[in-house]
């Protein structure tokens, strides 16, 4: 591919910024958990996790493809 200019330093800065933002989000979520009842925070967690699991199940990958993605397959033990 010709003419593609990648500024690695800029990409790394973005990466660091994103990570710092995720850490900040974790801190605010911890603060939320600390001042709300288990029922309140976990209902929000339930909605997120249940929808992520439902989405993952809709993917059409096969068991074999899933194991291959995990780098496992039956071949792992037979190699």
């Amino acid at each position: 591919m010709k003419g593609l200019k990648i500024d690695l330093a800029e990409l790394r800065k973005d990466q660091e910024r994103n990570f710092a933002e995720r850490l900040k989000f974790i801190d605010s979520w911890v603060d939320y958990i600390k001042v709300h009842s288990d029922k309140e925070w976990s209902e929000q967690q339930r909605m997120l996790i249940d929808s992520q699991i439902a989405n993952a199940r809709q993917s059409r990958i096969t068991k074999e493809q899933y194991l291959e993605m995990k780098g496992e397959r039956l071949a792992k033990r037979r190699a």
Partner: peptide, 9 residues
Amino acid sequence: KLDKVENEL
């Protein structure tokens, strides 16, 4: 003890 709403996981 956690009085949480259990999710699917």
